[in-house]
Write a protein that binds this DNA or RNA. Structure first.
Lengths: 212, 212
DNA sequence: GTCTATAGAGGGATAGAC
DNA sequence: GTCTATCCCTCTATAGAC
């Protein structure tokens, strides 16, 4: 990758962070990149093309950065601790905010939506793999699949990140609530066969109800 | 409220829905409202002023619409069912998407952030009251407070709504995962004093660890 | 209260020199 | 690959007629 492409991608990410999706323009990005405005079109064709490349590139790099650590996680507790660390680091670097801005823009733009979908899938695949290991043998895995749980984790992350920008206290509370609820899973593990039996009863009742 | 103010507020909400925060302008709103562009400035001073009024107005109306039903909820199961119904209705009406767009714009705009914060607090207050009733006496209330749980619910809602625009399948999975996890709370209720005791043990251990 | 017209800024995108 | 210059469009906001 040439130096100018690099600078433009970094400039796009920085502009997304500082001015949001509503403040994105070839001129604002070029100013952040310290580069001529016309180069956006020479290298990426359109502003959307640059946004697309920036989102893909930044997500891939972030996922790469955390892959090893996610792969090393051995318990729910460790996963939550890593999640909190990741939340703080990404918030300081402004990267979850970037994904949130892209997601907001993607609601009305099919091309950007495809990019956002693939970016989220990169994260979700890593999270799902970690959940698979952490929840193996736990009664929780009878309740829900990690392929559903992982997107829920990603969605919560994004929601909390956006929340953080307008009400930091409430967002911190939300994060704590989620961590507290994870204790429920551990309690169920502690209860062993008793908990597992109670869970099965509930699940049977639930499925009988949904047949009505 | 005059007819023109009404039309402009509705036009702003519709524009937020169809074109997102990046597509907001006095002209696009006025076109959606079927009204002259200059009237935005006559009635609301600036485009931001109109956005602000639209967000407050629309949130207050929505919260009002669901207040009675939220107040009638008597169990976690009923609350989840109402949540799912609300999710579908608001998605079809495009209102959670509107709040998500405002939230994205609010990250870089202090005035809009204040509006978004207050709008979220309207929702959170209702959700917290419902959770208070539903979780009264449940061991879950020893784990976390509804003042933390309610923002978590709101954040998850917003995250899922944004997710829905780019990956509907994954978003549906996320919603199901959350509903499944709620069964954990019911299982713990079923277990009565056994579950409560196991929970207390876990909590003691957790707090001992966090003192290290 | 509503309209037209317009100033002045910012924006996407391109042509063509270097 | 990079720059300047420019076209033409859209934007906010206001002035002033009605």
């Amino acid at each position: 990758m040439t130096d100018t492409r690099r600078r433009l991608i970094d400039g796009a990410i920085e502009t997304l962070r500082t001015r949001g999706i509503a403040g994105i323009s070839a001129r604002s990005i070029a100013a952040a990149a310290g580069v001529n405005q016309a180069l956006v079109f020479y290298h990426f064709g359109t502003v959307d093309g640059l946004l697309d490349a920036a989102c893909r590139e930044s997500t891939a790099a972030r996922v790469e950065l955390y892959r090893d650590r996610l792969a090393a996680v051995g318990s729910l507790r460790e996963l939550l601790a890593l999640g909190r660390e990741l939340n703080i680091a990404e918030r300081e670097a402004g990267n979850v905010a970037v994904l949130a801005q892209v997601l907001a823009g993607a609601q009305q733009d099919a091309a950007l939506a495809a990019t956002a979908r693939e970016s989220l899938r990169l994260w979700v695949a890593e999270v799902a793999a970690a959940l698979d290991r952490v929840l193996a043998g736990s009664p929780v895995s009878e309740l829900t699949s990690t392929s559903q749980l992982a997107p829920a984790v990603a969605a919560a992350f994004i929601g909390i990140e956006l929340y953080e920008g307008v009400d930091a206290g409430a967002a911190a509370g939300a994060l704590e609530a989620i961590e507290s609820l994870a204790v429920l899973a551990e309690v169920l593990d502690d209860l062993g066969s008793v908990g597992r039996a109670a869970l099965r009863v509930r699940l049977r009742r639930l499925r009988a109800e949904s047949r009505d």
